[in-house]
Amino acid sequence: MRLPLTAHTGRPWRIHGLAPDFRTEDVWAFRTPGAGPGDFGVMLDAMRAGGGFARQSRANRFLFVVRWKLGALLGWDRPDTGLGTRVRSLRERLPRELAETVDATAPDRLPLTPVYRLEDEDVRELANRTVHTLMHLGWVPTGNGGHELRMAVLVKPNGLLGRCYLLLIAPFRHLIVYPALTRQWEQAWRDRRQLLAGDTGPVG
């Protein structure tokens, strides 16, 4: 479910003080019935165990293939356009206690690089020629005594190209990508026991 931007900006997340030059682009909520305050790690691990590319919807897989082919053609994803080259990693801004919460060099099943992880926050980043993106996952109490997952996408566009790119992909994100991601992640929560019982790979 799509939420107003204030659902993210109005909460006291650590990311606000670390990335004031990024703007909040999207905020999305994922239902996790029966979740408690200590289940954030369980949710993250279930997402990774059940979130591979092969389990994406056909529409999502098609969009990502088109994006990768277009990026290869136009040079959007070359190594010199990403983290540590075109832009500095957000990890360079972290105090030591946050930097030590993740190993950014460890293998992972998600395509974004870990930045930090707390009991109720997980931040990852990705950069290319068009944009520097942060994915912020938060664990938020709900009015019924439970908790839910929220995702905020924070962006820093790379000039006119980045701004045009974000405008171009916005309808696809809102109508195809995020709804499919909602179904996948909410299903991962429902299947968490089965997924985690059979998951022996790294989870970041």
Score class of each variant (00 low, 15 high):
residue 167 L to Y: 04
residue 93 R to S: 12
residue 89 S to Q: 05
residue 200 T to V: 11
residue 184 Q to Y: 01
residue 131 V to F: 13
residue 156 K to T: 11
residue 63 L to K: 04
residue 45 D to S: 03
residue 97 E to S: 10
residue 15 I to F: 09
residue 197 A to K: 14
residue 35 A to N: 05
residue 45 D to F: 00
residue 5 L to Y: 03
residue 28 W to Q: 03
residue 4 P to T: 02
residue 125 E to F: 14
residue 82 G to N: 12
residue 188 A to F: 00
residue 1 M to H: 13
residue 158 N to P: 01
residue 191 D to L: 11
residue 201 G to I: 00
residue 99 A to D: 13
residue 100 E to P: 05
residue 28 W to L: 04
residue 160 L to D: 14
residue 30 F to V: 00
residue 97 E to T: 03
residue 104 A to K: 01
residue 134 L to Q: 14
residue 69 K to E: 12
residue 142 T to A: 12
residue 185 W to G: 00
residue 112 L to A: 13
residue 45 D to H: 09
residue 19 A to H: 10
residue 85 T to E: 15
residue 155 V to L: 15
residue 81 T to A: 12
residue 24 T to Y: 04
residue 79 P to L: 07
residue 143 G to Y: 02
residue 71 G to C: 08
residue 20 P to G: 10
residue 42 V to F: 06
residue 124 R to T: 12
residue 52 G to P: 01
residue 63 L to P: 03
residue 157 P to F: 08
residue 112 L to V: 04
residue 185 W to Q: 05
residue 119 E to Y: 03
residue 189 W to K: 00
residue 187 Q to A: 14
residue 71 G to Y: 11
residue 204 G to P: 00
residue 70 L to H: 03
residue 139 W to E: 03
residue 150 R to C: 03
residue 145 G to L: 07
residue 68 W to I: 05
residue 11 R to K: 11
residue 67 R to F: 04
residue 150 R to A: 01
